[in-house]
Design a protein around this nucleic acid. Structure first.
Length: 604
RNA sequence: GGCUUCAUAGUUCAAUGGAUAGAAUGUAGGUUUCCGGUACCUAAGAUGAAGGUUCGAUUCCUUCUGAGGCUACCA
């Protein structure tokens, strides 16, 4: 079990008082001044709620662990009336509390549930995510990126930051020209309207077409006896694409027109995909607008001696002191490279928003690139150079192996989302759950369930880790899945609806003296952790912590639901406490899921 | 080759240096009164290998084995 890390403010009163009592105990019994005491959750097999580990104090106290624990436990029991009993197991000191302590905690949680978000910090954070290329449609990897970026933005917002969401679209470069060239050669004036193909998919089709043409040209050259490496570099169609890039950079009218037209198609397609994903941005940047900006920074850096120029006029930075190599920042012909653009974009974003913290949601294959970028910004001594963080996420693997766009083994984002929604529809209709629904309401529900399943599946895993995407498991609605939690929420709504119809006030404070069951205490315990979880998830940029927490809450509630009656409980005090617990559980799930970008329907 | 990330039940995922390594799924059983059974309960099942540091190692260090990624005047 993990420790309970949290700033003091978000802790329950129980924890605060226990920590104070332990501090006093340590100082008056052993003259040990300890500042940051950490509590742990007591493991299920042992009695108690919080555990204090005394091993670290054995030397200072000069006693065996069990002896320290015994004395300390006795001290706390005598000085803090909320403690019911303590137990010593080796060096572990376990505390149990009175029911009144938990009822007070519940009352505190009721107040807190009016507003789950933490207080405003008055600090801006910029988050850049999505960052698609405009030469092909989005795939599964982009889904992880978009869901992650959006969710982290939501979490930071809930943690009190002022969040700005940006998207840097890569709309220029040789890869874009490849689609354009293939279209010029074989497109015959096809448009999204004429073909009925979504714009980004249509452009992607020509990107694939280019690759096929390119490969067949290479084959021909190789058969003519040309060295394969040479053939790859000299295939006519590739040379044409390079020419086209030059023409683009020179503003050639025909090329620009085609580029604009095809970009318009792609953007229209992306708009639809983003709408379906439920993500959005405060500002979209395009590399075609920002790629020249970095040059100014290179000039500055040259004057300050951060960069240096080689004989051929190319500009470099030496990062050997940082354990890296020399890195090129400007080509010998004066054109910018990828990192030059990113320097420029960083500067531009800072000028636009003035945020000193910046998060880049980009795959881990670019770890090195961002390491270099952040070092460069530091050397340039920029005001925003110390708040940069590369939220590096792992690749999504398929059971069949790695996704490779050129080999056609990618899972298309639009297809997958449609499939998830369709599956949700089939499952729900089999169960006859939407019988009283209008068609519109049903379709909305299928959206929420299908997308909920997909988002939860991708977000429950630690972002840093590589993950396996198994299509069959992702559409599972049982176990640790989005729909399981959504179902728990819907069931709670049904209960609270009935309670409200009979005029029960769910948000009332509860009086002391009611006896609580273990499952009730466990649920109060978990519900009381929510704000700390938000805080931790924000620090770690980790939606998976929120996802796991929501699952724990749902499971703990289902356990209670099976063991105890809620509406049918005859003792009014007990019934009201359980109704309050149900209500707060529902609200907590709903809020946690909103941080993941998932909707929790009231009925399903 | 150099740098880097990862390796946990059959499978997919958890575990600030702490107790008997948790879930889910799958398998085998089970649930008097079911407020919504997409639920709940029980059982079997795992730290790649070898060393080291520590009262204590899945976690930190070293070596090995295996799998990714980076190593472009592409983006």
């Amino acid at each position: 079990m993990g420790s309970i890390k949290s700033n003091y403010f978000n802790m329950l009163l129980v924890q605060k008082q226990l920590i104070e009592a332990l501090k006093n105990g340590l100082s008056s019994l052993f003259e040990i001044q300890a500042n940051d005491l950490v509590l742990q959750e007591t493991k299920k097999e042992f009695e108690g709620s919080y555990t204090f580990v005394v091993f670290p104090f054995t030397k200072q106290a000069g006693l065996a662990p069990a002896a320290i624990a015994e004395k300390l436990g006795q001290f706390v029991l005598e000085n803090y009336s909320g403690v019911k009993k303590f137990q010593v197991v080796q060096g572990f000191l376990n505390f149990s509390f009175t029911d009144d302590v938990w009822i007070n905690a519940l009352n505190k949680i009721i107040e807190g549930s009016q507003k789950f978000s933490l207080d405003k910090k008055g600090e801006k954070v910029l988050i850049e995510y999505s960052s698609p290329n405009t030469n092909k449609p989005l795939h599964l990897g982009h889904l992880r990126n978009n869901f992650l970026g959006f969710s982290v933005a939501q979490i930071l917002d809930a943690a009190g930051y002022d969040v700005i969401k940006t998207n840097l679209v890569n709309d220029r470069g040789i890869h874009i020209c490849k689609s354009m060239l293939a279209y010029q050669l074989t497109g015959q004036g096809e448009t999204p309207e004429s073909s009925g193909i979504k714009g980004d998919h249509l452009v992607g089709k020509y990107y694939v077409a280019f690759d096929q043409l390119y490969k067949s040209e290479i084959d021909v050259l190789i058969k003519q006896g040309i060295d394969p490496e040479k053939a790859k570099k000299e295939a006519p169609i590739l040379l044409k694409a390079q020419d086209m890039l030059l023409a683009w950079e020179n503003g050639d009218q025909e090329v620009m027109d085609l580029w604009k037209t095809m970009n318009t198609w792609v953007f229209a397609g992306f708009e639809k995909s983003y709408a379906q994903m439920g993500v959005n941005f405060d500002k979209i940047y395009r590399e075609s607008n920002t790629y020249l900006l970095g040059k100014k920074l290179v000039d500055e850096g040259l004057k300050e001696g951060v960069f240096y120029q080689k004989e051929d006029q190319s500009v470099w930075i030496n990062l050997e002191e940082e354990g890296l190599d020399e890195k090129l920042v400007l080509r010998k012909d004066g054109t910018s490279v990828y990192i030059t653009q990113d320097m420029g974009t960083a500067q531009l974003k800072f000028e636009d928003f003035g945020a000193k913290k910046s998060i880049y949601v980009v795959g881990n294959e670019q770890d090195y690139h961002f390491e270099v970028l952040f070092h460069i910004l530091k050397k340039l001594n920029k005001p925003y150079s110390h708040g940069n963080f590369h939220l590096s996420y792992g690749m999504v693997d398929l059971p069949s192996g790695k996704m490779k766009s050129r080999e056609g083994t990618v899972v298309d984002a639009d297809d997958l989302m449609a499939e998830m929604v369709q599956t949700a529809k089939e499952r729900t209709m089999e169960l006859g759950k939407t019988d009283g629904f209008t068609e519109e309401a049903s379709n909305e529900l299928y959206q929420q369930l299908g997308m909920g399943a997909l988002k939860y599946f991708l977000l429950k895993v630690d972002p840093k880790k590589r993950m396996m995407f198994n299509p069959e498991e992702s559409i599972d609605f049982q176990g640790n899945t989005g729909p399981f939690i959504q179902y728990t929420h819907a069931r709670i709504c049904s209960i609270t609806r009935k309670a409200m119809e009979s005029g029960i006030d769910l948000m009332n404070r509860h009086a002391n003296g009611v006896e609580l069951a273990v499952t009730e205490i466990d649920l109060i315990y978990i519900l009381g952790q929510y704000k700390s979880i938000i805080e931790t998830a924000a620090e770690a940029f980790s939606p998976s912590l929120i996802a796991m927490y929501a699952y724990d809450v749902a499971k703990q509630f289902n356990k209670l639901y099976n063991e105890l009656s809620i509406l049918k409980e005859e003792d009014e005090n007990k019934r009201n406490i359980r109704l309050t617990l149900a209500d707060i559980t529902g609200k907590t799930i709903q809020h946690a899921f909103s941080l993941l970008g998932i909707v929790s329907p009231n009925k399903m």
